[in-house]
Design a protein around this nucleic acid. Structure first.
Lengths: 325, 325
DNA sequence: TTGTATGCGTTATCAT
DNA sequence: ATGATAACGCATACAA
């Protein structure tokens, strides 16, 4: 493989000139530029980017930590990230960690190793304190609200959004409210859970452990939740479900058993997924795409500007009124 | 930042010895090893991997080319890839290209630049001939059947699978068959399309252009397809739809208008998605996860073994009988 | 406008 | 078992 030295030799110039041409620097005469370009073409030469990375101390790559790429939530965030990365000519290293702390730490180590210029943490099992230690090695952006930390974050107000959803439900007259949550790992699920409990307490609404259904990740889990709801002596008259696809399962199964939605059971979804639009599920849009896009823009800015000042960006949410509540 | 030289100086050994410790080479005495390890710990040292990549000529990274990460199909393949990459301690660079040939070429250029050790092409707008040119710079694996090329491939027999699906439909007595296809870009969609036309011709089944519905990518598109079907004077009595989520839209909208599935309209899905299971959609499973996992295993083997011999792996498909046909 | 010399941080080679 | 030194391929400060 040819290198810059060989190009210089054959083109009859110095390596500096070749480098200047390569990086579009000024102060290169037309003749020499042409000669260099010619030789590059002839020898089918390209730069060895590893050498560039070594000397510049930058790699043009950002790592993304998330647990499962095939979940709607994460794939949309990733879409936003990828779109912006493409615009910025940046590379994205997808680190699907399954919420394994060891694997997540390995990614942060990559920042120390200078293998990447920054890290975007979409969802993690790591404590904020651990993440903070790595801010010394490069910019980090999380997509969770971790408070005012030494790293940046862009997040949805899961707490407020969830309360708003509940407010919407009681505004429609529902008082017996059930709850359907996904995986317990993420920080957002526990935020939603406390929002739920606190809201119920504040509004003197009945709380029943039986109406709390956990680990609903798929359509099938939603359907199973519907069946368990049907078996109850006393059912909630409304249920708030994290994830429209789970809500879809719940709705379809409920209807199969003759329940009318929302007359017999109101369902409030989450995430504004395409399936929710199809089934006319009332849901909460929380701007997942924008979260990803925004996260990349922030980290890109921090990489370029070398400004270590963390940024905290709160994203708006909104209730999408359809017909299941 | 500390480097290997400084570690050597402080530990009172040579850089070679430090390097040996770093790489777990033999022939290092217990004392010196301990001294080195101590200093590394004290100075909070890690290797600059860019230097390692430069001298070894490897990066431990593989790029993945796909158009849209938030499509079910691609996110499942990516899941398979990511799972295997994690096991192999390899990094995955996600290149969401939107089927832009320029962007896809940029990724292949990364192979030339030594930024990556290999490329997995899940779906592309590039011609096989163009891809072949880059096999000189490192292993490439595609997830499409491109024939016996100079690069490897792992693929589903879209042609056979689709014909099998049609065979299943006529076996059930349907003769007026419609077709619902997604984005026209991918190679698999054109394969399915010719499978459809040829099967119809061979079996002397009626072909109607009006029954060919294109660009159905989402649940909503499926619903729209249902509405256009309802308006027809003469309707197909069965329709084969690429993507269970699109089939779901079609089914739900059809039922909303009083159509019975499968009595009035049989629906055959594709991809075996969770929503299909919920709605009991008869579908074709084409092992997307395994495709991704297999693609990574192949490329990993080729990177390690330096064997440039391409591998062609055909994946089995199977019809999942449920209740929409 | 151009070139020389140095350095980036590591591994590989070879000698001892 | 250990170390001195070259090599990887490039960018850049400085000199001209």
């Amino acid at each position: 493989m040819a290198n810059i030295k060989e190009i210089a030799r054959i083109a009859g110039v110095s390596v500096t000139t070749v480098s200047r041409v390569l990086n579009n620097h000024p102060y290169v005469s037309k003749d020499k530029r042409a000669a260099v370009l010619d030789t590059i073409d002839q020898l089918n030469y390209t730069r060895n980017m590893n050498a560039v990375h070594l000397i510049t101390g930058r790699t043009g790559a950002v790592a993304v930590i998330l647990p499962f790429i095939n979940f709607f939530y994460f794939s949309i965030v990733m879409d936003g990230l990828a779109h912006e990365a493409l615009l910025a000519q940046y590379r994205l290293i997808l680190c699907q960690t399954n919420y394994s702390p060891e694997e997540e730490l390995k990614v942060l180590e990559m920042l120390r190793n200078k293998e990447i210029d920054g890290v975007v943490i979409v969802s993690t099992a790591l404590q904020p304190e651990v993440i903070e230690e790595y801010t010394a090695y490069g910019p980090i952006v999380t997509c969770q609200n971790s408070g005012e930390r030494r790293f940046s974050s862009v997040y949805i107000e899961h707490y407020a959004a969830f309360r708003h959803g509940l407010q919407y439900l009681i505004g429609k007259g529902y008082r017996k409210i059930g709850y359907c949550e996904g995986r317990q790992n993420g920080s957002s699920s526990s935020i939603r859970q406390s929002a739920f409990r606190e809201f119920l307490a504040e509004n003197k609404l009945p709380f029943q452990e039986a109406w709390m259904i956990y680990d609903c990740m798929t359509e099938e889990h939603g359907a199973a939740a519907a069946r368990s709801l049907l078996e109850m002596r006393e059912r909630p008259d409304a249920v708030i479900v994290s994830g429209d696809h789970v809500a879809a399962g719940l709705i379809i199964e409920s209807r199969k058993h003759g329940l009318r939605i929302p007359e017999d059971l109101a369902v409030m979804g989450f995430d504004n997924q395409p399936i929710g639009r199809l089934l006319e599920i009332t849901t909460i849009d929380n701007q997942l795409y924008e979260m990803g896009a925004s996260a990349f823009r922030i980290i890109h800015e921090q990489i370029r500007g070398d400004s270590t000042l963390p940024v905290y960006r709160k994203l708006a949410y909104r209730i999408i009124e359809r017909s299941t509540v």
